[in-house]
């Protein structure tokens, strides 16, 4: 499936990745090539087949736990890797003027 520059720019925007103007054509070719290759799935008859959403073995029961807080009180640890923090919060560029 061929992708155009506008579509690639839109996907980049949705993915929150800045793509430079001069990269759009090459990316359109790469992504279009992959999409053309996966297109072969269209030939498979999937009528009445339920989508497989995970690979947990059928019949294996997954455990539930009590719905209680079992962790926390580690604010400094949580913030420890932040590129920028202030007053116990993650800090980001101003959102509201």
């Amino acid at each position: 499936m061929a992708l155009d520059r506008t579509t690639v720019a839109h996907i980049a925007r949705l993915a929150r990745i800045k793509v430079k103007e001069h990269e759009l054509d090459a990316l359109a070719g790469e992504l279009g090539g992959i999409l053309a290759w996966v297109e072969q799935l269209q030939e498979v008859n999937v009528d009445g087949v339920e989508p497989m959403t995970g690979s947990v073995t059928p019949g294996m029961k997954l455990k539930m736990r009590e719905d209680v807080v079992d962790d926390g009180g580690i604010r400094d640890k949580v913030l420890g890797n932040a590129p920028k923090s202030a007053a116990g919060f993650f800090a980001v560029p101003k959102v509201i003027e």
Partner: peptide, 18 residues
């Protein structure tokens, strides 16, 4: 770029992400 690892500055929050 908010909670860990690399952050590259931008004029807005979205631009920082991108």
């Amino acid at each position: 770029g908010t909670r860990f690892g690399l952050r590259v500055a931008g004029d807005s929050l979205t631009e920082m992400y991108e």
